[in-house]
Every structure is written in structure tokens, then in C-alpha cells.
Design a protein around this nucleic acid. Structure first.
Lengths: 180, 180
DNA sequence: TGAGACTATGTCAGAAGTGACATAGTTGCC
DNA sequence: GGCAACTATGTCACTTCTGACATAGTCTCA
């Protein structure tokens, strides 16, 4: 049984050959920020996927003491990925520390709370600006059969999320200043 | 060092005395669905909080073989919680399986994909209807110093999130039917 | 020429989280 | 009268994830 992290790696490799390092980079930045993992976890998971025959690699001289390993999907890997895509996702519970803090807002000092939300709002607005710049580069949705459709659709989701979050922060700030 | 789960428990106990079972119930359902945990984890964490002196309990005859334990915050627990509330939250990476699947949508069979998103949309709409009913019960935001403000503010966040998600699912369905 | 960032691999201890097992009284429904 | 669901506690093996440690060549800028 492949874990969700395993499928996340397969999903990245489906776009083309990559080293473990490349995969870690791809999962670190916010576009298609759908699943994250540290390189330590990725190397471990790649070894499992290798043992299951879902990926294979070729070596090349690398900068460090070890050789560079360039991974690619095998036929079995592509098949497993294709089957997984349309299975309903497990309901992942939200674990959102900011919302948890909000739940206890009544205990907090109002000015410190204001700073907290102003800071969060700034982060969301910055990320939103980033995403909007990226969306312009697309100039509209790619066809559904194109790998780039996946990138665009996840970017759309990110845009919607950041807008919802920024709105909520603004609402919180309005509540806080109304109560002074 | 108290974990975020620890603070989630403290946040629930700040509303009033509760058993471990009650806390597990409170963290299971979607309003203030900010953090979840199984009862096995909650019992373990309560023992840690007890050792740190952040909670205390009194026993009462219970239904099972063990006595019922009614937990409450200690002074130190309230102080720790109050301090934590306004500290900036750790950036929790998103781990969203549906978005991950979307990233690989180009590999999927279009009809199966349509079913997946139609199903997800229905779930979000059902939850939205739930939340809207709850919002009506409030009839506007409680004052910021009231514990119920926390409930209302997290509900607002949930409403915004479900709307954003439902919108995104509808957009996906539109893309899929346009491509047939 | 030297410092710091980047590429690239990997291990390991420990924390956090899951799902199953175990126990047992009460309550509501058919 | 019996069955299922609910209340209520807890343990345990296992998986997943994190953060630190370890190694070492290249590239860029001052």
C-alpha cells in the first residue's frame, strides 16, 4: 500500500524525470502546495517506491559523495497513479493553528491580537500577489488533458484560498477595532 | 514544551470542565474544526498536561471500569494558554489530497473525475448548509471578550472555506464539461 | 581568496498521530 | 427481552513526520 506521500512523489515524477532533490524543491513552494515533505522523508519514500517497482532511476556523477539519481515512473507507477487519481480522497482533518488561536481569542490582549491578524493578512496578501502574477503567465486554463491543467487548477484553488483567508483576517480586524 | 494538541485541549477546557471523552467529541465535529485528535491521543496528552500542572481533575463514578475524570484548567494552564494565543502560528503546510489528485487530473478518465468533483461539491454544500443554520442561531457576532466570540469567528472561517471550496469544485466541473 | 548559498545524497532519534483492542454500565428502540 | 448506540477510560504496535547531523563539490559575489 502506497501512502499519500508516495502518490505525491509519483505525481511530480509523472511530469518528467527528477532527482530526489528536485522533488523536494517542487513540494516546498506554494503553487500546488498540496502536499509537503522534507528531503529526508522523500529519500526514504523513494526507496519504498523503488522496492515496489513504481519508480526506477539512472545514476549520474553528482556533486556530493554519492552519485546523483535521476528517477522516473515505471509502467506500474503510472498505472498505480492513474488508478489513484479518481478514488475519493480521505477526509483530511484540518489542523489550523491560527483558527485554534481564534477560538481562544477572548483570552487575549486585544492589541496583541490585532498585530497577529495584521501580520497574517500581510502574508496572505503577499502570496495572493504572487499567485496572481503566476496566473497571468498562463493566460487562461490549459486543456484538461494537458499536465499544465493540473498546475493551473491547483493555482486556482490557491488563489481562492488566499482570498478567503485574507477576507477573514480583514473581518477579524474589523471586529477587533469595533470593540475598542 | 506543550504541543499544539496540548493547547487545543486547554482551549476547550477554558470554556469549562470536561471529561476526556467530551473533549474528543468537541474536536471531532466540523464547527471549530480547527484541530482534531482521537480519544487515544487526548488521554495521552491529558496525562502530559497533568504532569506539567496545566490541568487538574476530580473523579466521579463512571459507567466503565474506571472512574470518570472531570478535568479543569489550573492557574498555570490559563496563563500558558493566554500567552500562547497571540504568538504567531507555525506555518502549517497544507496537505490536501483532493488538490494533489487535481494536480494529476490530466491522467484521469474524465467521467470518473466528474463524479469525484460532483461528490466533493455535494459534501461542501451540505456542510455549508449546516454552518449557515448554525450562524443563524448566533444572530450576529458576540462581543470580542466573550468565549462565544471564538466559536462565532471560527464558524465564519469555516463558512468562507466551504464557499471557496464549493466554488472551486463548480469551476472544475465547468472545465470538465467544456472539454467533452 | 574566501564566505555563503546551492546542489545532492543519506541516516537516525524522537515526536506525533492512527487504528485496533479491551472493559463495562446506561439508554432508547423495536 | 435483546440489540445497538452512547458514555467513558485506557494501552499498544505501528506509521508518519520532523529536525539535526553528516558529507562534499560548484557557483556567485565581494
Amino acid at each position: 500500500m502506497t501512502s499519500t506521500l508516495g502518490f505525491a512523489i509519483l505525481a511530480v515524477l509523472a511530469r518528467g524525470e527528477r532527482t530526489g532533490y528536485d522533488i523536494a524543491q517542487a513540494m516546498r513552494r506554494p503553487v500546488a502546495y498540496f502536499w509537503t515533505a522534507r528531503h529526508s522523508q522523500i529519500h526514504t519514500e523513494l526507496q519504498k517506491l523503488l522496492a515496489e517497482g513504481l519508480v526506477a532511476y539512472e545514476t549520474q556523477a553528482g556533486p556530493g559523495p554519492q552519485d546523483k539519481k535521476i528517477y522516473r515512473l515505471t509502467g506500474a507507477g503510472t498505472a498505480a497513479l492513474r488508478e489513484w487519481v479518481t478514488e475519493p480522497p480521505r477526509e483530511r482533518p484540518e489542523r489550523d493553528e491560527l483558527v485554534l488561536k481564534t477560538y481562544t481569542a477572548w483570552l487575549a490582549e486585544p492589541e496583541a491580537l490585532r498585530r497577529l491578524f495584521a501580520d497574517q493578512l500581510a502574508r496572505h496578501e503577499a502570496r495572493l500577489a504572487d499567485y496572481e502574477r503566476e496566473e497571468e503567465l498562463f493566460g487562461g486554463p490549459p486543456p484538461v488533458g494537458d499536465p499544465r491543467f493540473g498546475n493551473y487548477a491547483t493555482l486556482r484553488c490557491g488563489l481562492g484560498y488566499e482570498r478567503h483567508r485574507a477576507d477573514w483576517c480583514r473581518w477579524m480586524l474589523a471586529q477587533l477595532s469595533a470593540s475598542l
